[in-house]
Simulated scan of single mutants.
Amino acid sequence: MIESKPLIAMIHAVPAAHRIAHEAFAQEFPQATVWNVLDDRLLVDANAAGGLTDALRRRMLRLIGHVLDGGAQGLLLTCSSYGEVVDTARALWDVPVLKSDESMFKAALAGPYRRVAVVASVPPAVPAAVAQLEALIPAVRPNRPVDIVTALSEDAAGATDPATAARHLAEALQAADGTDVDAVLLAQYSLTPARDALAALLGVPVLDGAGAAARELRGLLLPAEQPAAPAPAVTP
């Protein structure tokens, strides 16, 4: 039986994701006890190697094993670049293990959106996010096509405030012919602070992964207490 305050582990590759995910769980899943594990070389080493290597996959699996052996009843990987390791973890452990943006993608595909944009500020996040989104289409949305646009703004990674990050992302979307999308999906937790400002610039819903993941884990572990999911943020 799941305890009333389930232990949820989160493995982070960047410090900013720790704060953002923690805030999302405090709002969406306050019953959870959160355990944060940070390896701030995960993304740096993946970038240097040009992607995930076998050694990096094994390293992530060791971290996953560490928290699950420590009693975690649910796990969220907040780095999209390591999402593929979750498939292996699910085969090894009988505990809910979520990829960073999986819940957000499922919510987007279940919605009415016909054209969506995936935006990021670091190059590895783009193909990793698109791969996750496309892999979910047959199960979540088999009979309705969806057009996916991608936009990368490395300038957004260096922005000093959310409004500036949002402006850089909007400019990247414009350059990618993505201004006529029905929704925007943030491929990194570090972009979450720019969500509302980007929605204001574009006038469409902007979805983030942290809140969606918190809601899904709450529904899996405390189904009797699961409220209706709130609508995504959008400009009035």
Rank of each mutant, 00 (worst) to 15 (best):
T78H: 07
E134W: 02
Q132T: 14
L109I: 01
T88M: 08
V130M: 06
S80K: 02
S81K: 01
V126F: 03
E84P: 02
D101Y: 08
G74E: 10
S80G: 12
L92R: 14
V130Y: 04
A131R: 13
Y113T: 06
L133G: 05
R114P: 01
A108N: 04
S80R: 00
L77V: 14
V97T: 12
D69K: 11
A72K: 09
G71R: 13
K106Y: 00
A125T: 13
A128P: 01
A120T: 06
T78P: 06
D87C: 02
S100Q: 14
A110I: 02
A128D: 04
P127A: 13
A108L: 05
C79H: 09
L133V: 08
E134V: 14
T88A: 11
K106H: 10
S121M: 13
T88G: 01
L77S: 12
L68M: 09
H66S: 09
L98Y: 02
A129I: 03
Q132C: 13
R90L: 11
S81F: 05
G65F: 00
L63E: 07
D87I: 03
S103E: 06
V119W: 05
A117Q: 08
M104G: 12
L63D: 07
V86I: 15
R62D: 13
L76E: 08
V116W: 08
E84D: 12
S121V: 08
P123M: 10
V122K: 07
L92Q: 14
G71F: 12
A129L: 05
F105T: 04
A120M: 03
S80F: 02
E134Y: 00
R62G: 08
A120E: 04
L63F: 11
A89K: 07
K99C: 10
S81L: 10
Y82C: 02
T88Q: 12
F105S: 05
P127S: 10
